[in-house]
Design a protein around this nucleic acid. Structure first.
Lengths: 403, 403
DNA sequence: CGTGGTTTATAAAAAATTTAATAAACTTGC
DNA sequence: GCAAGTTTATTAAATTTTTTATAAACCACG
């Protein structure tokens, strides 16, 4: 832990060795496979004897473990090493409108602890904040001896967030200090904050379908619409961390008033909210659907419409196609601007990926230039609904250059 | 030169020292002010005696020069050092539709040589390519002894370019090899290729108004419309280097057919071309203007309209306002997506910056969210019309991590 | 099944770097 | 104007790192 917790900025021998060890740990943790000492030494420009010395010290500290001997084509087989998966842990907290979850991961990002509350309702009140603090605090208690080996805690919260200052604008904005400062003082851990969409994008970038992609767009299509932009392998946060407000881009033909105060926001036409609204309007106008009469119209949520579409409900499918086409057109514009290698569609809408795929692609051809479009893959996230915690925790590893 | 030309990948002493020297040179060249040995050593985690040794070797190689003693508040004044400005040179070539220019810069980016041909007309023919090759070749001859000290040549060419592979798609696309390969074989120099807009963006990023900005948009508004996106301090090239096709984003209300084969491209409404078209249409419909009857209508170029606007021609001003407003609306969308800290307007339209500023800002408020808009500055490039060479040459320095 | 070729690992010798000590240059305060 | 404090520069001693040499592990080929 000392290796990450303390800052070594001197020019003395100890600082240099700390820096080398940190680079070594970074290299080992970023590598998919265990590494041999000669390979490590080539990368770090170190002689084999010193490399061996440093690795042995890292083993003595419990940071690195020996894995075994590697199969090679010729020559003596090297002993290979990896980061001790139980050396340290990261915490990922997801605070959504109707759910809070706390996940704890080991160095291999295996979830070693999870606790969630699906009854939770996010409100911008001190009571809600102290519930959140208590909830996280309980989880920390349950961690027992692991508690002392936590590198940091990453949070993903709905709403607008300045991930650079650690401020949350929509929720818990009544504090004197920033939300990050508040949580730091409560838990005495390094805290990293971002919005739910960026956190989902991080998960996709580091563990999901954008793992090998240096330029990607990750769309979060659930009740709202957001985007994470990956350029040069890094998440684009922008000047204040507000980047990715895809749902508030003005592409639309509609003139519905958005909560942001503008008309024509894409999110008013492409989102779970829009799906609900459109569905209700069509049904009121006498359109038939498989969904009803099971539930009352006002109780229908976009999740239900997505399920109905999967079951073949014509109205739901038609509405989804419409949304997919509009989304595709908007994405085509972003393709022209950023030339991504792949676009990953995530969020609750992925359950209807079969229905969306064609309409999104069709929309993209309407606006994207053929050259950048040709090499841009449209993929659907396989991360699942509860991957937010992983992305939230990834912020911690990212900060320590371990990912 | 050896320091940059050769690759040192070993773990031996010589490679390590080469790597350290390269880092030292990078640090010195990136610094605005000359640096003292203790400051260098702190950054490179080196003891003062070794730092001194390396600096002395760099001086012996002619790479570094002593500047003098620095004023400090207390203590002995340190001797400060900088890169020898005449140690090496970079070449920047700009190949536009109606101009070719070759500039040579020293390490301080002072132009030590320039040659241009304003009669040049870019055509996708072998003849035009050999003219270009000859033109550059002549410039190299005229460099005399400096010729042996050229780090590399960067080119900015109109049209679509894959800067990663070095291919040019619109011009000189008849070659078996890539344009970069072709030029490399002709000049035996490291060659770096990108389009004119990215090259202009590079100039703005490293020497212009985006110098201290990690997240910026640089708009190239001339006869066409392009953009360079800067995120996390780096130029966003995208998967194939096509990023920045702002002019082909579909925001427009117009349905004019663009050369790309689509309708509604922003460049059909916001560009020098659009300005010309709109002007002609209005004049045909009997609108009055100060510009005519000096020239015939079909000879009017957008440059003339911009000048007329500066002189107070009501029609030209009105048309510019319209373009500015539309541009602002489109930029507002990109603000929502990327949250830039500043937007720099460059290209030929900057002569009318006074007229554009308000209308662009007004357009931006129509689409941009208030939070990201508030901290986004709208600036106008001061780089001037012939700064493309500087940006082209910057590619070389960027490649060697000297900028 | 042994010899030659290849890669890894370890131990002693050689080289390079850091540390510590000292001198030099400069400011401030009395 | 001199002593105390601060920072840079240089030199010699101590430490660390690399180099070299040697052994170990493994494959392929005859």
């Amino acid at each position: 832990m000392e290796l990450f917790r303390t800052q070594h900025n001197g020019t003395d021998m100890e600082s240099k060795q700390f820096a080398q060890k940190r680079k070594m740990v970074a290299f080992l943790n970023k590598s998919e496979d265990p590494l041999a000492i000669p390979a490590i030494c080539r990368r770090l420009r170190l002689s084999v004897p010193t490399g061996t010395k440093l690795v042995n010290e890292l083993i003595a500290d419990g940071i690195v473990v020996e894995v075994g001997k590697m199969e090679t084509d010729n020559g003596r087989r090297p002993v290979v090493y990896k980061i001790n998966p139980e050396y340290a842990y990261t915490i990922g907290v997801e605070i959504l409108l109707k759910r809070i979850s706390v996940s704890v991961f080991n160095m291999e990002m295996v979830e070693v602890f999870q606790k969630k509350d699906n009854e939770f309702v996010l409100e911008n009140t001190p009571e809600c904040l102290s519930f959140v603090v208590d909830f996280i605090g309980q989880c920390l208690e349950e961690l027992d001896e692991k508690k002392t080996r936590v590198l940091g805690m990453g949070l993903g919260i709905t709403g607008r967030v300045n991930s650079k200052t650690g401020e949350s604008y929509n929720y818990f904005n009544f504090l004197e200090e920033t939300l990050t400062e508040h949580l730091s003082s409560k838990f005495e851990l390094p805290i990293f904050l971002d919005n739910d969409t960026h956190v989902m994008g991080m998960a996709e970038r580091f563990f999901g379908k954008a793992r090998k992609e240096k330029n990607a767009l990750i769309v979060n299509l659930s009740r709202g619409l957001g985007m994470t932009v990956i350029s040069n392998g890094k998440v684009v946060l922008g000047n204040q961390g507000f980047a990715g407000e895809f749902g508030h881009m003005q592409f639309g033909e509609s003139s519905k008033l958005c909560i942001c105060g503008k008309r024509g926001c894409l999110g008013m036409e492409v989102s779970g909210y829009a799906l609900e609204e459109n569905f209700k309007e069509y049904v009121k106008n006498g359109e038939k659907t498989l969904l009803l009469p099971e539930g009352e119209l006002r109780k229908v949520r976009y999740d239900n419409i997505l399920q109905a579409a999967r079951k073949g409900d014509a109205l739901s499918i038609a509405l989804l196609h419409d949304i997919g086409f509009k989304l595709g057109k908007a994405l085509g514009n972003v393709i022209n601007l950023l030339n991504p290698g792949s676009i990953i569609l995530g969020g609750k809408f992925v359950v209807a990926s079969d229905i969306l795929a064609d309409s999104v692609k069709s929309g993209m051809t309407h606006t994207a230039l053929s050259q950048p479009l040709r090499t841009c893959d449209l993929l659907f996230s396989e991360a699942g609904d509860e991957s937010g915690g992983k992305g939230a925790a990834a912020q911690v590893l990212y900060h320590y250059d371990l990912i």
